[in-house]
C-alpha cells in the first residue's frame, strides 16, 4: 500500500488538501468517540435485549420439538402395546376355540362310538340268537325229516309189499341213503 501522503504531523495547514482521509489523524479522536458510542449501544442492545430473546425463542422451539417427539414416542409405544395385547388375546381366543372344537369333536366321537358299539353288540346278540334259533329249527326240521322219511318209507314199503318193514331196517336204509 502506498502511503506517501500520510501526514501524522499535527496541524494541517488551512486550505491545503488534507491527508489521505483514512490516515487523517486529526479525525481519529472524533471517529473513536462515535465508534465507542455506536458499538457500545449495539453491544448493550444485543447482550441485554436481542440475543437473550432470540436464544429463548430457539430454546423454546427445541424444547417444544423435543416434547412433541417424546409425546409421539409415548403414543407410539402405547399403540404398539395395544397392538401386542390385541395379537395376544387374538391368539388366545384362537387357541381356546381350537381346544373347544377338539373337545367337542372328541366328546361326539366317544358318544357315537359308544352308541355304535352298543348297537353292534345288540346286533351281534340278535344275530347269535337268530343263528341259534335257525340251527335249532334246522336240527328240529332234520329230525322231523328223518321221521317223515321213515314213515314215508315204511308206508311206501307197506304199500308195495303189503307188510311193514322192520324199524331197524328202515333206519339202516335211511342211514345208507343219507350217506350216499
Amino acid at each position: 500500500m502506498a502511503q506517501p501522503i500520510v501526514t501524522t504531523t499535527g496541524a494541517t495547514p488551512p486550505g491545503a488538501k488534507a491527508a489521505f482521509p483514512p490516515f487523517a489523524s486529526e479525525t481519529f479522536a472524533s471517529q473513536l468517540l462515535w465508534f465507542a458510542l455506536a458499538f457500545g449501544l449495539l453491544y448493550w442492545l444485543m447482550s441485554r435485549i436481542a440475543l437473550p430473546r432470540i436464544g429463548t425463542i430457539i430454546e423454546e422451539r427445541s424444547n417444544r420439538i423435543a416434547a412433541d417427539l417424546d409425546d409421539a414416542q409415548r403414543l407410539k409405544d402405547e399403540s404398539d402395546a395395544a397392538a401386542t395385547a390385541y395379537e395376544k388375546s387374538l391368539a388366545e381366543a384362537h387357541d381356546k376355540a381350537k381346544a373347544i372344537a377338539q373337545e367337542t369333536r372328541d366328546a361326539l366321537g366317544a358318544e357315537s362310538n359308544a352308541k355304535r358299539n352298543a348297537l353292534e353288540a345288540q346286533l351281534a346278540d340278535k344275530i347269535a340268537a337268530s343263528e341259534a334259533a335257525i340251527s335249532a329249527r334246522t336240527a328240529e326240521a332234520m329230525a322231523s325229516v328223518r321221521g317223515i322219511a321213515a314213515e314215508a318209507a315204511t308206508a311206501i314199503v307197506e304199500r308195495l309189499t303189503g307188510r311193514a318193514p322192520e324199524r331197524a331196517a328202515v333206519e339202516a336204509a335211511l342211514d345208507r341213503a343219507r350217506a350216499s
Binding site: E26, W34, L41, L45
Partner: peptide, 27 residues
Amino acid sequence: IGNSEIAFTNASLFMFSAVGIIALLTL
C-alpha cells in the same frame, strides 16, 4: 479538543445507521 475536531460525521451517521438497522432487525 486540541488539534482534533469532535464532529458528528457521515461516518458516525453510518455507524449509528448500522446499529439502528441491526437493532431493528433483531428486535
